[in-house]
């Protein structure tokens, strides 16, 4: 599976591309949103599931990604391609700055500080009318001519999301990824086996922020607009629900969660405005009865079905069971 990563990548791109050709405008837009949210959720779960850090400010980085593009395009006027490259970099730098302070704290205090930073970023964006347009957002964003036809943009999104997904997958399965899980499981002992916890956390916080920035950039380009609401802390909750629903101790869980939540949101919006009630109910049921999430439970069931006799060759898996979650 590892060496054949390129092969998987090609298949995924091809399948998604075919699907996007078959679908009409509405479903293509939905599909793009799902993919972007999947990337956002994957970046979030790098913190939540892999490292055991509960950030309440992750949506701010999603927003910064989009806003960096929007502000560069409308205020600075740099070429769109340059903006596309600069947006994730700028987001990662801001994540580095925020993370520098946050990673010193643990548990609920870490969550609180990420909330505080996230809300500062949100409030500044929301209130600074002359620069960010306040709650009017920035609409009518220019895009590179090549990406203007929806079909072309779909290809671009598929390409970027799949590439990022594979990069994140490799990260999660590298020694670095294992060190993240080691920190999640037991921060104290991790230090005693030579893992520099704070530095590693800062790196993963920056990486997660950068990927969230890419998702935010794609989202901004998809709708050609950015709004401060994209940064609000409730937005972080949404991506948290996605991760949990899919299964935070599995790599693909957040993708599945993003798919379900996004599709549900589109579908339910036509029937009821009480979306939060549904989101809350899903979250409640997940926490009480389903803490391993969909993918986690499936993996568990599969493991029982196959019931491998204890063999000396260890099975690798993020889904090594367990309901709860360690807050580092």
């Amino acid at each position: 599976m590892w060496r054949s990563g390129a092969w998987h990548w090609l298949v995924a791109v091809a399948v998604l591309f075919t699907l996007s050709l078959l679908l009409g405008d509405f479903y293509r837009h939905l599909g793009m949103t799902v993919l972007i949210m999947a990337l956002f959720a994957l970046s979030y779960n790098l913190l939540l599931g892999e490292t055991g850090l509960v950030s309440f400010g992750h949506a701010a980085f999603f927003g910064v990604g989009g806003y960096t593009y929007a502000l560069l395009a409308t205020k600075v006027g740099t070429p769109a391609l340059v903006n596309i490259v600069l947006a994730p970099i700028a987001t990662a730098l801001i994540a580095l700055l925020v993370g520098y302070f946050c990673v010193r704290l643990h548990g609920i205090l870490f969550s609180m500080l990420t909330l505080a930073f996230g809300q500062v970023i949100y409030t500044v964006t929301f209130q600074w009318y002359s620069f960010t347009g306040g709650d009017n957002g920035i609409v009518g964003l220019p895009a590179p001519p090549l990406l203007i036809p929806p079909g072309n943009y779909a290809v671009f999104v598929i390409f970027v999301v799949v590439t990022c997904g594979i990069a994140l997958w490799r990260l999660a399965h590298s020694p670095f990824g294992q060190a993240l899980r080691i920190m999640r499981e037991n921060r104290e002992r991790a230090e005693f086996i030579g893992i520099p916890v704070r530095r590693l956390r800062l790196i993963v916080f920056t990486i997660a922020g950068g990927f969230a920035g890419i998702a935010g950039l794609l989202f901004a380009l998809l709708n050609r607009q950015v709004f401060p609401d994209d940064m609000y802390w409730a937005q972080t909750a949404q991506v948290l629900v996605m991760s949990l629903l899919g299964g935070i101790f599995t790599f693909l869980g957040p993708v599945v969660g993003a798919f379900i939540v996004t599709v549900l949101q589109y579908w339910i919006a036509t029937y009821t405005i009480y979306w939060l009630l549904i989101l809350g109910t899903i979250l409640l049921l997940c926490v009480l009865f389903f803490p391993q999430g969909i993918v986690g439970s499936l993996q568990e069931r599969l493991k029982h079905r196959l019931a491998p006799p204890p063999s000396p060759s260890p099975l690798k898996g993020e889904g090594t069971g367990g309901g709860g979650l360690v807050v580092g």
Partner: peptide
């Protein structure tokens, strides 16, 4: 190898 992001840990 803690900072190595490229090798597969299984191997």
């Amino acid at each position: 190898k803690v900072f190595n992001c490229f090798l597969h840990v299984d191997r």
